[in-house]
Amino acid sequence: MRVKEVNWSNKGLLSATGPLTIMLLLFFLIPFFMTVVLSFQSTQYYRLQWTWDLDIWKEVFSEYFIWRIMWRTLTMSALCVVLCVVISLPIAYALINRMKSMENNVKILIVFAFLADAVLKTFGWVLVLDKSGVMNGFLAWIGLPEIDILFSPTATMIGMVYNLVPYTIFTIYLSMDRIDRDLVRAAYDAGASRFRTFWEVTLPLSKPGIFAGAILVFVLSLGVFLEPKVMGGGTRPMAAELIRQSFETRVNWPLGAALTLVVIAIGAITLAIAGKIAARTSAANATLAQEDSK
C-alpha cells in the first residue's frame, strides 16, 4: 500500500478522523491534562486551593506507605499475570485440541462469565468463600475441615484471577489457534511426545498471545478495586483503593490525581519494558507472520 500525501485542509480526511480526534480529546487527553493540573494544587478543609506548587508531589515521594501500597500492587499484579497465564495455557490448549466439539459452548460459557457484572461476581465469591459458604459446605460434605480464606490475600488473588483470566484465555487461544497444525504434526512425526511438542512448538508459538494477555491482565490488575476490598477484607489496600480513599474519604483531589498519575506511569513503564522484550523475540513472531502470508 502506498501512502498518499494528504493536506490537513482535506475535508474528507477531517470528517473521517474528526470524530475519533474529538473522542480522544474529550475522554482521554483533556481529563489527563486536568489530572496533571490538579496534582499541582492542594486542598484545605475539603476545598480545592489553586496553589500551583509541588507540595503534593513532595508528599507522594516522601510517604513510605504510598510506595508500600504501590509495591504491593505491583507484586499482586505480577502474581496475577503468572497465575492467569498458567491457568489459561491448558484451557486454551484443551479448547483447541481436546474439546473441538464443545469448543463453542465452552467459549460462550467463558464469555458469559466474563460479561457478568463484576460487582455481582465479586459478591458471589463472598458467598462461595465465606465461613458458612458454598466451599465450606462442600468441604464439610466430603469430610474435610473448613478453611477460612475470605478476607485474606488469597481471596483477593482468587477474585483477581477469576475476573481477569478470560483475557489470557482468549488471547492465548487466538494465538494457539493460528498455529499451523502441521507444525505440531511435524514434531510428533519427528518423535516428540505430546508434552515435548507443547514445550517446543505450541508454547513458543503462543508467545504473542501470552504477551498480549499478560499485558492486558497486568494493566487491569493495577486498577483492581473490588477484589482487595470485598474479598480481601480491605486490610491490604491496593493502588485503586488508595486513590479512592484520597479522592473520596480524604477529599484530597490533588493527592488522588498525583497517585493516579503514578499508577499510569507504572503501567506505561511496564508496557515499555514489555514492548522491548517483545521486540527482542519478534524475529520468531515476524517469521510466523511471513509464514502466514505465504
Binding site: D130, G234, T235
Partner: peptide, 18 residues
Amino acid sequence: RAVVADLSVAQKGLLDGS
C-alpha cells in the same frame, strides 16, 4: 479481620461470628 465498606458483608460476618 476486615475493613468493610459494604454493609451486607459486615452484617453477614457479624451473624456467623466471623
